[in-house]
Design a protein around this nucleic acid. Sequence first.
DNA 1: AATGAATGAGCGTTCATTCAT
DNA 2: GATGAATGAACGCTCATTCAT
Lengths: 194, 194, 194, 194
Amino acid sequence: MVSDTKNKKLIYKEKRRKEIAENALDLILSKGLSNFTMDEVAKETGVSKGTLYLYFDSKDSLIITAFGILVERLKNYIGKLIPKETSKEEKAKAIIKLYSKIIKEFPSDDLLRLFEILINSIHNKKRIKELVELFHEYYSQLFELWSEFVPNKTIAIILQAMIDGIGIYKSVGVDFEEGELCPSLEFIIGKIIS
Amino acid sequence: MVSDTKNKKLIYKEKRRKEIAENALDLILSKGLSNFTMDEVAKETGVSKGTLYLYFDSKDSLIITAFGILVERLKNYIGKLIPKETSKEEKAKAIIKLYSKIIKEFPSDDLLRLFEILINSIHNKKRIKELVELFHEYYSQLFELWSEFVPNKTIAIILQAMIDGIGIYKSVGVDFEEGELCPSLEFIIGKIIS
Amino acid sequence: MVSDTKNKKLIYKEKRRKEIAENALDLILSKGLSNFTMDEVAKETGVSKGTLYLYFDSKDSLIITAFGILVERLKNYIGKLIPKETSKEEKAKAIIKLYSKIIKEFPSDDLLRLFEILINSIHNKKRIKELVELFHEYYSQLFELWSEFVPNKTIAIILQAMIDGIGIYKSVGVDFEEGELCPSLEFIIGKIIS
Amino acid sequence: MVSDTKNKKLIYKEKRRKEIAENALDLILSKGLSNFTMDEVAKETGVSKGTLYLYFDSKDSLIITAFGILVERLKNYIGKLIPKETSKEEKAKAIIKLYSKIIKEFPSDDLLRLFEILINSIHNKKRIKELVELFHEYYSQLFELWSEFVPNKTIAIILQAMIDGIGIYKSVGVDFEEGELCPSLEFIIGKIIS
DNA sequence: AATGAATGAGCGTTCATTCAT
DNA sequence: GATGAATGAACGCTCATTCAT
């Protein structure tokens, strides 16, 4: 019984933690990593600022948890889009379609903020270590996607880097010929997985 | 004579401006955009904080100037490596070699910080506008490199995005098989410009 | 009960706000509007500077609140002195006496500072708007005093302007024949309300 | 000869001093006493900031000199308007007209700034002493104007205080019935000098 | 467990004044 | 005599973190 109560409490606490982190993430996504404050997180969650420190040691650890949620979101987003086709040819087509879709929807603040958080944390040893671990969860899923079509994992990673590079380029104002982007992407991917 | 003295002063002033901006850039590169302060720039340059404002209107304009220097650095770095070969075939080989070199030297904090500054400035309308203009100077040079080998400019941009994407990936801790990276890159570029 | 606690807190908070504003007012009165700093207000109140900003959005809003207290003080001061006589003749005499008293007590820094704050805020659109609203509370009370004896409101205002003008003159060092001031005032008022 | 050169220099220096002070005054009139800077004075005069300190010991002494010029200006303005009529009756009418004119032209920033400078200097012992001396030059001229029509000097001062009070009231936003102001003023003055 | 008042170190910026040239 | 670069103390304001209740 006692352990039941304890369990309930733990579950409640975990729920609360997540709620806070989600609000933090929303703020990070909308205002940028270095423009969001603990005050706002507290206000958004409807608790006092002190309460945040019952669930998180520091702003840093809140950022890390928020980052984890972002990674989870992106994983789910991609997961749903991953082609289930069995024939290799159809799968190839589906992948091209998938990435065209992703790219079309850029600038996705989500992806950009993911890199913002990562890049901004490079001088924070402790933080970057934890973030990179979470980030791995996200990209390893993507690399697998390519694995069937390319000679080795490194090429898979490079292709994924290309996609993210395009996203960042779009976000920071590189001017793509809007109509040319998807066909060009298809052209490139086609060449490689052929 | 008078104009000589004036000229000397202007040159001196310009030199001072650059000195400050370079110190600012160093600090940005070493501590990150959101961790560097005017106090530190002053200390590093050996002047008082007030002096900085004789040369720059605001922290923002100092950041923009520092960014300009960074862009210039990257341009020079690339400029020196750009192949002068005339035969198309040799040029192709040279490009592959060039990018292998660039990638090998990553994680170059320079490139990463360039994107950090850009990404972090997205919520600052005035600043991002000026940064993007400077950024254009950098990447347009690169796009030209590819133009001979690809059907359109967009593909050139995508290839460059891929290179930058790899740089960012390396910087944030994606683990490339060190030995595989360059050959893989060559494989991809080869496929595309073939 | 809950609402009781809440109430207590609100009252406490309001008390604190007032305490801060009163200290600010004291400083304004003693050092002048453009010489008082948030640091001093904090020190005087015995709190940290940051705390001030829990109670006031800005220095401006603190000034406005302090000004409100000053207006209130002046209103109370005048309120107590306002004649309750019913016969018009007696009331006239009482008014003359009232103003003689006010003038005798000059230079009242209070009144002078009231105008200092107003005059110094003329280039601050937002602030002056709020100050003038508060100022109205003060002088409309005074104008009524005269209304019974003069043909129109404008004359009432002018008479009040005269009183304030004398106050300012005394404060800035115009040398009145001390013994002549009150009789002269009585002479003038007598002429007008006759 | 030597003394001639010296003289010339002195004259030149005095001219320069005045030029600087006039620019300072213009800035004070347009931006307010606590909003003008030595930088702006230098820029406006076309000299370096350091040069200002060859002509003035401090910002304070520049303010005092500028104040003197303002007083001079007001004296000239009034001087020109002072009635030269010989018959007492005509002179009375002329005075009423004169003050109607002055009041109509309010809010004259000039007069308001005169009081702003005075009021703001009350906590600056050295400065206020010098200002008051200059101020006397201005108002003593005005008091004489009334002297013929009133029983004593104090009443003359009070009437002048009334005029200045109206000016200040207008400047800080007291709402006069525009059409009523001059007739009311005439009514009051008429009553007193009758 | 939760609060929210309080802190205090730190930030970007301003400006009267000085002084080597 | 004139310069203008440099100073440095001060200012208003912010915010992650703490702690008594």
